[in-house]
Design a protein around this nucleic acid. Structure first.
Lengths: 210, 210
DNA sequence: TTCTTTTCCCCCTCTTTGGGTTAGTTTTGG
DNA sequence: CCAAAACTAACCCAAAGAGGGGGAAAAGAA
């Protein structure tokens, strides 16, 4: 086995059974090597830089500093290392935050062993491992709520407001009068039961009206 | 040529050159047949049901009713027809929303002819929006630009601004003075070379700083 | 026709924004 | 440890914008 060509994998996971199970699996796969295993981010921070992994498997729910919080810190310690999030949950928010925080991929803990190894290989080659289930969830999150109380024009105007544009600018771009935009906004606020821009944007996004 | 075995393709695209180009290309490929071509959704709505296509190539930016708006209407008219989105720009959000609304795939208009035909074949065989290519795109679209000129605090404040909150409210929620928020915003504007909220949000989103 | 949507008008007050300039404290990196 | 960067805060100003009150005409769809 040529040590220098192996993909070096680190595991940060508090559950010993899972941690050792993954380590055993990966350590016994040709082309892969365990660079280190740690029960928490605090432990990992001490040694992970000299252990120098190519890929880190990171549990989202760690004791102390959570995986989500640890993500940017790990990225800073090891900018070129790919991080794959491990979680039992498959929740939208968590996925978005993980991906937005620099994770290269996302795996649920019940993923089959072969797929875990395949995912590690994939991220080192520049891809992102994403199960069809997760992909479907992410894509469906872009779906609008069809039972919006807002009319087409109101939705359009609220979208523009959400980009930070002024009422005047929206009026100009939609070729309508400023007063018309104001009227629409009054109706939007009434329908969403809010009294400010920020609350309208939040209410609309929460309900997927925009 | 056995008419009944051909894959029937419809094109909804306002640009005549592109429309006829695609029609010529597909019509002259063995196994494919043009079921109809239309310059707008309004035109398509009149005849597309009796033209009965297996696959529809749909432009995102149509005059009148846009492609995005047309998608659910087409799905309702022809529930079993696969729809492939056509776009000039790589408008990620638009593409994702399309996928969420029932599109089976997307193609940019400069795609090579062979790939267009391949994409049509793929969707008729069940390859949908969960292809590795699309999944990769989803992940990369959530990745922040690591070489942001903005500091952590500036990014945080710009994110808050992007939600429509006032400076006062941001100051309160971050437990800092309004004047501090103003200072940060001045620095943000200077760094992004903009002079307004809307422009800062756009510049930051375009560059994936937020 | 009737209802909804879209359009536009007037009034008002108060908040917010963008910009100029300076400066102390804290954190971070070499 | 020291210097640079980041974060914090203060003062000034004019202009623009936001939110809310009321009303009403025109266009479209049901």
């Amino acid at each position: 086995m040529q040590r220098d060509l192996d993909i070096r994998v680190a595991i940060i996971e508090d559950d010993e059974t899972i941690r050792e199970g993954y380590a055993f699996l990966i350590g016994n796969t040709t082309g892969y090597k365990i660079a280190g295993t740690y029960p928490s981010f605090e432990e990992a921070a001490k040694k992970i830089v000299q252990d120098d992994p190519d890929v880190i498997l990171l549990d989202v729910e760690l004791p102390g500093i959570s995986g989500i919080e640890a993500l940017p810190k790990l990225k800073k310690l090891l900018p070129d290392t790919h991080i794959i999030i491990l979680t039992v949950y498959e929740q939208e928010m968590l996925i978005f935050r993980s991906l937005g925080n620099g994770a290269a991929g996302y795996l649920t803990k019940n993923t089959q062993p072969e797929k875990i190894v395949a995912a590690i290989k994939e991220v080192t080659e520049g891809g992102g491992p994403m199960s069809a289930h997760v992909a479907r969830m992410v894509i469906s999150s872009f779906k609008r709520n069809e039972s919006t109380p807002l009319t087409r024009r109101e939705t359009e105007i609220l979208e523009q407001i959400a980009t930070g544009k002024s009422r005047k600018r929206i009026a100009d771009e939609l070729f309508i009068d400023l007063e018309t935009v104001k009227s629409h906004i009054k109706n939007i606020y009434y329908k969403l039961d809010v009294h400010s821009k920020a609350d309208a944007i939040k209410a609309a996004k929460d309900n997927k009206f925009i």
